[in-house]
């Protein structure tokens, strides 16, 4: 693993290794001194072409807990917004001596371009690219799922995967980098995935994806689901004819109070409700659902730091024992 660009590139062994190291890192977060010397003297650049305070501070906290130096390079108000190219920015970071680049970009594939070109040699971590992928979000989601799944079954989480788990991903699949990264990773870890969305918000080519596709959230929930992952509905979708209005969206595809009540009537909390944040309360998720004991929203945030510590550690610590990526879950034709 030279870069982390897509969860498609992660083998089962890679993914479990990241999650296992993240568990060790999570333990650091509970100590009084939340710091390890592992990356002392190394420089991590957070190169953010899109605003995302949540993701940036998560990576920043992760790098700092490993004692790395952190440079935050925000495109807003910098030379980048004055037309400097991705290439020039990358070469600048190379000249500065960046040891790793964490990139968030509005264009799908921008991190892959950095990794494939000779503009910069440093490992590249995709912190969300366009409507493509957000692999560390999927890893922190998998971490959260694994913690829940192993506790539920009374086994140790270390070394385990998500075999047998049923996960529903609900909402704007078409534009969601979180959904794509989660699908590949959850499949690699043995979970079953159902994508629930209005047909307008499913990619045209998703028929061949290794998941079940449903237009009916209630039927999916009634079928027995261990975790429901609600996706954020972006404001601009509401004005582009993907669905009639937010009221209808919320009624058909939102996790509202009625669905929470139906879930509470069926089980005693075994099904968890996830959201990558930031939430539109009252649209894709009701406040009662977001604040219920089933909600893992805050655990996801905390796990994000641990998982990003693990990724930076693996990419920068020079460990050569990592297994090679596998194509196991790559869909046909790729």
């Amino acid at each position: 693993m030279k870069h982390l660009l897509s969860t498609l590139d992660l083998s089962r062994a890679d993914a479990i290794r990241i999650l296992d190291i993240a568990e060790e890192m999570a333990a650091v977060g509970t100590r009084e001194v939340k710091k390890l010397p592992a990356l002392r003297g190394r420089t991590v650049v957070n190169l953010f072409f899109e605003d995302s305070t949540r993701t940036r501070i998560s990576f920043e906290a992760a790098a700092k807990r490993l004692s790395a130096d952190v440079i935050n390079f925000s495109a807003k108000g910098s030379s980048v917004s004055k037309g400097e190219s991705l290439k020039d920015t990358a070469q600048t970071l190379q000249a500065i001596g960046a040891d790793a680049v964490v990139i968030r970009h509005g264009a799908s594939g921008a991190p892959a371009r950095l990794a494939a070109t000779d503009w910069i040699d440093a490992p590249v971590v995709n912190a969300g690219d366009g409507t493509h992928e957000h692999p560390t979000q999927a890893l922190l989601d998998a971490f959260t799922l694994r913690t829940h799944w192993s506790a539920l079954h009374g086994h140790t989480s270390l070394g385990s995967d998500l075999s047998g788990m049923k996960v529903a991903i609900v909402g704007d699949i078409l534009h969601s980098r979180v959904a794509r990264s989660n699908l590949w990773l959850l499949r690699t870890l043995g979970a079953e995935v159902t994508m629930v969305a209005p047909p307008t918000l499913l990619p045209h080519g998703s028929k061949v994806w290794p998941c079940t596709i449903s237009y009916d959230l209630d039927a999916t929930l009634a079928g027995g689901i261990d975790a429901v992952m609600m996706l954020r509905v972006q404001g601009e979708r509401m004005h582009d004819s993907f669905f009639p209005n937010t009221r209808e969206y919320s009624r058909l595809w939102g996790f509202d109070d009625a669905r929470l009540a139906a879930l509470d009537a069926r089980d005693t909390g075994e099904t968890i409700i996830m959201h990558p944040g930031p939430m539109n309360r009252g649209l894709e998720i009701s406040s009662a659902a977001a604040d219920s004991p089933r909600s893992t929203v805050l655990a996801q945030v905390a796990n994000g730091v641990a998982v990003r510590m693990a990724v930076l550690y693996l990419l920068l610590s020079g460990d050569q024992q990592r297994p090679a990526p596998s194509d196991a879950t790559r869909p046909a034709g790729l």
Binding site: H132, H204, K207
Partner: peptide, 18 residues
């Protein structure tokens, strides 16, 4: 639109040209 709309665009997250 960025590329042919189909199985590959679905994975790559690029807007489709149907």
């Amino acid at each position: 639109a960025q590329m042919n709309e189909g199985e590959v665009s679905a994975v790559l997250g690029l807007a489709g040209w149907p």
